[in-house]
């Protein structure tokens, strides 16, 4: 699908590693509004590589005048965030998908507890605006290593409901204490490193929270790894996947027709059948079930990699 080109209207440095980008329609037309927690996919023509990364929207969901994202520079990543930090300037045009949401608020909740680790603060920035507009009670806990790295601080409202936990200063976040004693009908949302998400899920289960009241979004970016090859069953063609390239990116670069949205292993759009597998699929997604992973007959090319002699896909 052809994506609309949006203009980079502003770039601002929030911390040594994080920059904020604002996109607007080049003609000033309003953009579709969205729901808190939604993301967009940004396309970057980096030389002859077309990069696509998904980022949570951090601006007001009810404001169609522009979209804002916060991008943490990942020097050991595949190169998309580095490209945005180094090569993109104000006035440039980039293809940006319309918003989609895999981390929506549960509007049945009587109270919302938001728990962020590091750059995992981003989806909460739009959710807070939605909650405030709806007059729904919330509290936010934001865990960071140091104040200097707490890029989200500048974007958070001045509020008694915002709690900062700086591990360098000894104020580590106590998830059990946050969840204990919350009133019935409270929902908790976690976004950040895998360990944080697992800890929130564990504590919630220990305290007897219903599973439906516990939400999370791992802001997973495709992990780099060893290079491997994949064979397309229809044509017998072999495609090389580089160490800093995702399988999905390699397939797209080779011209394979493949759908995608979140590019982080959560939405299920790029699910692909495996027609031959001699070796081990390194599943990094949150979509396939344990049984499906073990069977090695499905793969999520946005996140997962392969180690072995031969991987053939139904493409």
């Amino acid at each position: 699908m052809t994506r609309p080109l949006l203009k980079v209207a502003a770039i601002e440095t929030l911390s040594p590693l994080v920059k904020r980008f604002r996109f607007e329609d080049p003609e000033g037309a309003p953009l579709p509004v969205f729901s808190g927690g939604a993301h967009v996919t940004v396309e970057m023509a980096d030389g002859d590589v077309l990069r696509r990364n998904s980022y949570s929207l951090i601006s007001d969901p009810n404001d169609g005048s522009g979209y804002e994202i916060a991008v943490r520079r990942e020097d050991r990543g595949r190169g998309g965030s580095r490209y945005l930090h180094e090569a993109v300037a104000e006035g440039d045009l980039l293809a940006v998908s319309p918003p989609a949401n895999l981390f929506a608020l549960d509007l049945r909740a009587r109270r919302h507890v938001l728990i962020a680790g590091g750059i995992g603060i981003t989806p909460f920035l739009s959710q807070l605006r939605q909650l405030d507009r709806a007059g729904q009670p919330w509290e936010l806990h934001y865990a960071v290593r140091s104040r200097a790295e707490a890029a989200g601080l500048a974007l958070l409202p001045e509020s008694a409901h915002v709690h900062l936990h700086v591990s360098e200063e000894g104020s580590r976040m106590d998830i059990g204490a946050i969840l204990d004693g919350q009133p019935l009908g409270t929902h908790v949302y976690a976004c950040g490193p895998e360990g944080l998400i697992a800890a929130v899920a564990d504590q919630a289960a220990r305290l007897g929270w219903p599973a439906a009241a516990v939400h999370s979004e791992a802001f997973a970016a495709p992990p780099p790894g060893e290079a491997f090859e994949v064979v397309l069953a229809a044509s017998g063609r072999s495609v090389a996947v580089g160490p800093r390239q995702s399988l999905l990116e390699a397939l797209e670069a080779a011209g394979a027709e493949i759908d995608s949205s979140c590019r982080g292993g959560a939405c299920g759009r790029c699910e692909t059948a495996v027609t031959a597998c001699e070796g081990r699929i390194l599943h990094h997604d949150h979509w396939l079930s344990e049984a499906e992973r073990a069977a090695q007959t499905r793969i999520m090319p946005c996140m997962s990699r392969f180690k072995g002699a031969r991987l053939e896909l139904d493409l």
Binding site: M1, P32, F34, S97, P98, P99, A100, S261, G268, R269
Partner: peptide, 10 residues
Amino acid sequence: KFLNAVTQEQ
């Protein structure tokens, strides 16, 4: 599966 993947776009 299809319905969950419907976006604002289409």
